[in-house]
Amino acid sequence: MAEVDGAVIGIAMSGPSQDPDATWGWQLFLLYVDAAHHGSGAGAALLNTVLHAHEAAAVWVADPNPRAQAFYGKHGFTPDGHSKAGPDVRERRFVRGPGTA
């Protein structure tokens, strides 16, 4: 959790990968920073709190979501060609470490 003056401005959560084809151990399930704090470094701090800096991991990102995709690219994640679509959202998988395309 990230806070400014006692107010929560962001949250993140990771855990063991849920993807059956994973060649990495961890998955980022959630990273959210309030829009008023985008660019503040809070997102990077949260990411580095829930995943070690160069740990092999994956994250599913809404597509299109160029801001989030650029953020993950900056932190070493690249799309691996996998996607999935639900009734309301399409997602692309980004990986860092083993399995990176």
Rank of each mutant, 00 (worst) to 15 (best):
D34E: 13
S83I: 02
S83W: 11
G25M: 06
F71C: 06
H52K: 15
Q27E: 15
H75N: 08
E3T: 14
A2G: 07
F77Q: 04
R90S: 13
Y72W: 04
G99K: 00
E55F: 05
L51H: 00
Q69I: 07
K84R: 15
P16D: 13
G86E: 14
K74D: 15
Q18Y: 09
T78Y: 03
E91C: 09
G43T: 05
H54M: 07
L51Q: 01
L31P: 00
A57C: 04
H75M: 03
Q27V: 09
F71V: 07
E3V: 12
R93C: 14
A57P: 04
T100Q: 15
G76R: 06
L28Y: 01
V4G: 10
R90G: 02
R93D: 09
G97W: 01
P98C: 04
G43E: 12
R67T: 15
Q27D: 14
S14L: 04
F77H: 02
G81P: 02
A58S: 15
R96D: 01
P16S: 15
A42F: 03
V8C: 12
V95Q: 05
F77A: 03
S17E: 07
S83C: 12
H52V: 08
A62G: 10
A101W: 08
A22R: 08
S40G: 11
R90A: 14
S83F: 10
A44Y: 07
A85V: 14
R93T: 11
Y72L: 09
G25N: 09
G10H: 05
L46M: 07
A44P: 04
A36R: 15
A35K: 10
L28S: 01
M1P: 09
D63G: 03
D80V: 01
V89H: 07
A44T: 15
Y32L: 14
A7V: 13
H54C: 07
H82L: 15
G15Y: 07
L28V: 02
P64R: 00
A56I: 04
S83Q: 13
H82G: 06
G86F: 00
P16R: 15
P79I: 12
W24Y: 13
S17T: 15
R90I: 13
H38M: 06
V59W: 06
H54G: 10
A68W: 00
S17R: 03
L30E: 13
E91K: 05
A22Q: 09
E3G: 02
G86S: 14
V50S: 10
D63K: 04
A56F: 04
R92N: 11
W26Q: 15
A2V: 01
A53M: 05
K84Q: 13
F77C: 06
F77N: 03
A57G: 11
F71M: 06
A44F: 07
A35R: 12
S40W: 04
R96W: 02
A68D: 05
T23Y: 00
W60K: 08
T100E: 08
L31W: 03
D34P: 02
W26E: 10
Q69L: 12
A44G: 11
D5E: 14
A36F: 05
M13Y: 13
G10Q: 05
G39T: 02
V4M: 09
G39D: 05
G97Y: 01
A85H: 10
P16V: 01
A70L: 01
